[in-house]
Simulated assay, not measured.
Amino acid sequence: MKISREDVEKVAVLARLELSSDEISALTGQMDAILSYVDKLNELETDHIVPTAHAVPLENAFRVDEIRPSIGAENALFSAPDRVNDFFRVPKVIE
């Protein structure tokens, strides 16, 4: 076994988990299986694999910038609850 019952108990204390004896026994087996799987992954030959941050190459999905007319201040402020000239009036948040 790669992990002992005492290791699981220590982790439970650090995580502030109250585990029963049955739960500790079950977790010991489960955690041992996980660590065995990780050991198996460490056996893979990865010397010629380039490290990647993403599994799929990222591409810019933005559209091309085009100059278009805006909706204008009057239309933007049409349903504003409170306005001053061409601006929204909002509650003061900094005193």
Rank of each mutant, 00 (worst) to 15 (best):
M1T: 10
I3F: 00
R5G: 06
E6P: 12
V8C: 05
V8A: 05
E9S: 07
E9L: 09
K10N: 12
K10G: 08
K10I: 15
V11G: 04
V11F: 08
V13W: 13
A15N: 08
A15Q: 07
A15K: 08
R16D: 07
R16E: 12
L17F: 08
L17T: 04
E18F: 08
E18R: 12
L19M: 02
S20L: 01
S21W: 08
D22E: 12
I24S: 01
I24E: 00
I24K: 03
S25I: 05
S25R: 11
A26G: 09
A26S: 10
L27K: 10
L27P: 05
G29I: 15
G29K: 15
Q30I: 11
Q30C: 07
M31P: 03
M31E: 03
M31Q: 05
D32N: 02
A33Y: 07
A33Q: 05
L35A: 11
Y37P: 00
Y37I: 05
Y37Q: 09
V38P: 09
V38T: 14
V38C: 14
D39C: 09
K40C: 01
K40D: 01
K40W: 02
L41M: 01
L41K: 02
L44P: 00
L44R: 09
E45M: 02
D47S: 14
H48K: 13
H48R: 14
I49K: 01
V50T: 09
P51M: 11
T52R: 12
T52L: 06
T52C: 09
A53I: 15
A53W: 13
A55D: 08
A55W: 09
V56R: 07
L58S: 06
L58K: 14
E59Y: 05
N60S: 09
A61F: 09
A61G: 10
F62L: 13
F62H: 09
R63Y: 11
R63C: 11
V64D: 01
V64Q: 03
D65C: 03
E66K: 10
R68W: 04
P69L: 01
S70W: 08
I71L: 11
I71M: 12
G72I: 03
G72S: 04
A73N: 13
E74P: 02
E74S: 06
E74N: 08
N75G: 03
N75I: 10
N75P: 05
N75K: 14
L77P: 04
L77I: 04
F78G: 06
S79I: 09
A80N: 11
A80G: 11
P81K: 10
P81T: 04
D82Y: 12
R83D: 02
R83E: 02
V84N: 12
V84R: 14
V84Y: 13
N85Q: 00
N85V: 00
D86H: 15
D86I: 13
D86G: 15
D86C: 14
F88H: 11
R89M: 07
V90T: 14
P91L: 02
P91E: 01
P91R: 04
P91V: 02
K92D: 07
K92R: 15
K92L: 11
V93A: 11
V93M: 12
I94W: 14
E95D: 02
